[in-house]
């Protein structure tokens, strides 16, 4: 018994030490470094016009990418979870491809498409449309890397729900939209929310892919993560960490929402479990 306790205490301590060193310490370090020179320097770093522009660009990118990928996720989940069809596995694999491609390679794809010597580059240049090293490419690269998030959350959830409730709704005279709005979505709302949160976190935090296509024009094509990189490489650690702290806050909010969603959906699962 006492030996058991010893093992237990030792293993718990080891796990906590590992997590402390690898997760908690870095998280704390972001804020500590950001506030190293006091609140004044921190506030100055965030008041900087380039920082503000970076925040605006990041929000704008997410504002386009997240709703589009959410709609995609809903479409894909409806098709993949409620119907049987040939090629479904292939479709799911295609959906997951962005996860197995390096962010840098993801960015490269859009250089190949829209670069000066790319597939559409010359045509776009001739018509004076700027895609690469501008907002459109940043959005496209972000779309690419965040495609699977919502769909991946929804598909297993909607598959587990089955189709009986939807069939019941149809026999009661509901139309497709009514079935989706009144029956399907209320059942998966927490999973949907979680998918959207994750998608948003990645959209705002994406670095590698966006870095390739952004061109790093200060105040114009630098998202918040790119802004952090520039400041860090210019040996402005306080400013870099101040900007980073905004992203760390985003991460904390994401984690908190995730915990809330898990708690809520756990509650629903407990409530709907059939009594024996």
């Amino acid at each position: 018994m006492s030996r058991h306790r010893l093992v237990r205490v030792a293993l718990t301590a080891a796990a906590l030490a590992f997590l402390g060193l690898f997760l908690a310490l870095p998280l704390a370090a972001v804020f500590a470094k950001a506030l190293e020179r006091g609140a004044g320097a921190y506030a100055d770093a965030l008041r900087d016009p380039d920082a503000r522009a970076a925040v605006r660009l990041t929000l704008a990118t997410a504002a386009v990418a997240v709703p589009l990928n959410t709609l995609f996720g809903l479409c894909a989940a409806w098709a993949a979870a409620k119907f049987e069809f040939r090629g479904k596995r292939l479709l799911m694999t295609c959906m997951d491809l962005p996860f197995s491609v390096s962010p840098v390679v993801s960015g490269l794809l859009f250089v190949l498409l829209f670069g000066a010597r790319g597939l559409f580059g010359p045509y776009l240049a001739a018509h004076g449309v700027k895609v690469l090293y501008a907002f459109p490419a940043i959005v496209l690269a972000t779309l690419f890397v965040t495609v699977p998030f919502v769909a991946r959350e929804l598909i297993p959830l909607m598959e587990a729900q089955g189709t009986e409730e939807e069939e019941a709704a149809v026999t009661l005279g509901a139309s497709g939209w009514q079935t989706l709005w009144r029956v399907t979505l209320p059942n998966v709302k927490w999973g949907l929310l979680y998918g959207v949160i994750l998608c948003n976190a990645r959209a705002m935090g994406e670095f590698g892919a966006v870095s390739v296509v952004s061109g790093h024009i200060r105040g114009q094509t630098t998202t918040l993560p790119l802004h952090v990189e520039i400041l860090y490489n210019e040996y402005q650690p306080v400013a870099a960490f101040a900007a980073a702290s905004l992203l760390a806050l985003l991460a904390l909010v994401t984690l908190a929402l995730k915990a809330l969603v898990e708690w809520k959906s756990g509650e629903t699962a407990r409530a709907t479990r059939r009594p024996a």
Binding site: E164, E167, A168, R182
Partner: peptide
């Protein structure tokens, strides 16, 4: 038709009243 499913397929997130009212509301 009125279809009663084997496992009832009641709408989990609605009250009993709203379940019965569903067909009338849509």
């Amino acid at each position: 038709i009125g279809f009663v499913f084997q496992h009832y397929a009641l709408f989990k997130h609605m009250s009993v009243f709203e379940n019965v009212a569903f067909g009338l509301r849509v």
